[in-house]
Simulated scan of single mutants.
Amino acid sequence: MTALPETPGAHPDGAGQMVNGVVAYKSGTNLVKQGNEEAGVTQSRVIQTGEYAGLVSRALAYGADAFFVALLTGGSVTVFAMIASVVGGWAGELGHLISSSYLIFLPSIMAVYCALFWLLAGRTPGMAVLGLRVIRVDGSRIHWFAALVRALLLAYFPIGALWLVVNRRHQGLPDLVAGTTVIRVPVTPPG
């Protein structure tokens, strides 16, 4: 596929060009192809990367996801503890144990949440809102092992993500170890 020329005034929200029967958008230096010539699949695939996500957008996305996971987990633990206290006996002790240890397991829950979303969709809900996607450095979809390694490092060693400030591809330590990067993709409205 040939590179698209810069089109003055072209915007990735619908003003794409047809190249070999495929709609392609150029946003800065980030070329996104939608569709598949053979199968008619409408899944987006990054051809060239260039518009890497920065610290603020990534922190906001991760913060939104962490808030959602903490809220969901905390609510579930609270409901379980309340039911266990009503039942009494050993269930009350189990409820107390779970409610006192849930903060220890919260990073693991966050890691599983992120890894599953990255593996299945290439992004978490927080990343989708901000138009971010996790891909491998070569532009392909993230694999399960890279998703798991990246999620565990980000959950248990979040300070390592600050390396993205000095890296030219905006890769934090979890990205460097997993061989991934986070890019901006055009957010297209449904319909």
Score class of each variant (00 low, 15 high):
48 Q>D: 05
15 A>M: 06
1 M>Y: 12
54 G>K: 06
139 G>E: 03
163 W>T: 04
71 L>Q: 00
77 V>W: 08
67 F>N: 01
71 L>T: 01
21 G>Y: 00
150 R>M: 06
69 V>S: 02
125 P>R: 14
15 A>Q: 07
107 P>T: 06
49 T>D: 08
22 V>S: 05
61 A>D: 14
175 D>N: 09
98 I>R: 01
88 G>K: 00
55 L>M: 11
155 A>T: 11
67 F>M: 11
77 V>D: 12
160 G>S: 11
158 P>N: 10
169 R>F: 13
18 M>E: 04
50 G>R: 01
46 V>F: 06
100 S>A: 14
150 R>S: 02
126 G>R: 12
53 A>M: 06
178 A>G: 09
144 W>N: 02
171 Q>N: 08
122 G>K: 00
90 W>P: 01
126 G>S: 06
104 I>Q: 05
110 M>E: 03
129 V>L: 13
151 A>S: 15
42 T>Q: 14
158 P>E: 12
19 V>H: 06
14 G>C: 08
69 V>Q: 02
69 V>P: 03
172 G>D: 00
35 G>K: 12
65 D>K: 14
29 T>A: 15
35 G>M: 11
30 N>H: 14
91 A>E: 01
102 Y>L: 01
112 V>I: 15
138 D>L: 08
86 V>E: 14
14 G>L: 10
172 G>V: 06
71 L>Y: 04
128 A>V: 06
146 A>H: 04
90 W>V: 07
58 R>Q: 10
15 A>T: 05
141 R>L: 12
143 H>N: 08
70 A>K: 00
126 G>I: 10
149 V>K: 00
157 F>L: 03
177 V>D: 12
4 L>Q: 13
6 E>S: 10
14 G>M: 07
62 Y>H: 15
44 S>P: 12
106 L>P: 04
42 T>H: 13
99 S>T: 02
43 Q>H: 05
109 I>F: 11
87 V>K: 02
43 Q>G: 03
139 G>Q: 04
13 D>Y: 13
90 W>I: 05
61 A>N: 13
69 V>N: 01
180 T>V: 05
95 G>D: 05
19 V>N: 07
28 G>V: 08
78 T>Y: 12
162 L>N: 11
140 S>R: 01
64 A>H: 08
97 L>Y: 07
132 L>H: 09
85 S>Y: 06
47 I>N: 02
150 R>T: 01
69 V>H: 01
153 L>C: 11
38 E>Y: 10
78 T>K: 03
52 Y>C: 04
14 G>F: 04
173 L>W: 15
176 L>E: 09
181 T>L: 15
139 G>L: 06
168 R>D: 13
82 M>P: 00
80 F>N: 00
148 L>I: 11
126 G>V: 09
171 Q>R: 10
24 A>M: 14
20 N>D: 15
90 W>E: 04
179 G>I: 02
157 F>K: 00
17 Q>S: 12
32 V>S: 15
66 A>V: 07
191 G>Y: 03
